[in-house]
Design a protein around this nucleic acid. Structure first.
Ligand code: FES
Ligand code: FES
Lengths: 147, 147
DNA sequence: TTTTTACCGGACAATTTTATCCGGTATTCA
DNA sequence: TGAATACCGGATAAAATTGTCCGGTAAAAA
């Protein structure tokens, strides 16, 4: 579905968002990688992408780390993260890989896949990081497997 | 969504199925690759996978090529092709990459993604190659872009 | 039987994705 | 000011995916 980079990016953003929202504190890379169970250096690259895209904030030096501002918590959507990392192909492209998806020359699956893709877009578009972070805080969602 | 190999495999199977159903003739690799606009040698690898999985039939020598029997046309589903090439991860795995998707420890997107994944499974499970081949024959579906 | 056709199988190569390492820079704190 | 902290950026490497090449095998036709 999503690339590994995108999976890490989403999980990281939600974790950082939860810490920002509930505890008002920044979290370091080491902490993030441990809490979402991802490779540290690779996660750093993904977070840098998100920072450059303006979807989360970073601060250098001691007491530094990553955080989501109140504004980011309320407005950054899953879709923005997915687009920033994976691009829009999965959100617009043809399921069978035709160079473009359109009703002009639809692939044999076009009309079956449209509602699925629309629903995916809807989910990604209507959920903010703050909202998902709330679920984690309430114990309704997990970002790694606890044995 | 799907891997390139899987996209080629689905398009190829539909094209071969259409030729088998409507014209009762086998098609060669060169023909397949041209009609679905895919790299020839790579497509050969994918077709070999599908033959080994019993989802389509190949015949060597002159007048040989690939075909779908009447039984295969009526019973082989998209899901079988996807599973044979990409495996079942996209059909069962967690959207955020957790090692397993379950309501025991759901990721924050679990309940939003379940209906999407269910609908995807339903589409793949309920459409046979013969059915999709019919759309191509009727001009309702395309397997490559005509300019 | 010989030749030709076309799939099969394995090795190989290019590209993309995933992952690591390390020095540089900015920031905090003593 | 100096030292420690932690993100930044580029280079590098490993792995997976995508793509190619070529000789081998089976089958049909001459
Ligand atoms: S043309 Fe294939 S999904 Fe629209
Ligand atoms: S646990 Fe993530 S989709 Fe089910």
């Amino acid at each position: 579905m999503f690339s590994k980079a995108c999976e890490y990016g989403i999980r990281a953003a939600i974790y950082i968002g939860q810490q920002s929202a509930e505890l008002g504190r920044r979290v370091g890379l080491r902490d993030v990688a441990a809490e979402i169970d991802s490779p540290e250096a690779f996660t750093a690259k993904v977070l840098q992408q998100l920072v450059r895209a303006g979807l989360l904030t970073s601060v250098k030096g001691p007491t530094g780390g990553f955080e989501l501002t109140a504004q980011q918590l309320a407005t950054v959507t899953l879709r923005q993260i997915v687009v920033a990392i994976d691009g829009g192909d999965m959100l617009q492209g043809c399921a069978l890989g035709l160079p473009q998806c359109s009703a002009q020359q639809p692939c044999p699956l076009h009309y079956q896949f449209l509602p699925i893709r629309d629903q995916l877009n809807e989910v990604l578009r209507t959920h903010t990081i703050g909202e998902l972070a709330g679920k984690v805080h309430d114990g309704l969602g997990f970002l790694k497997q606890f044995t």
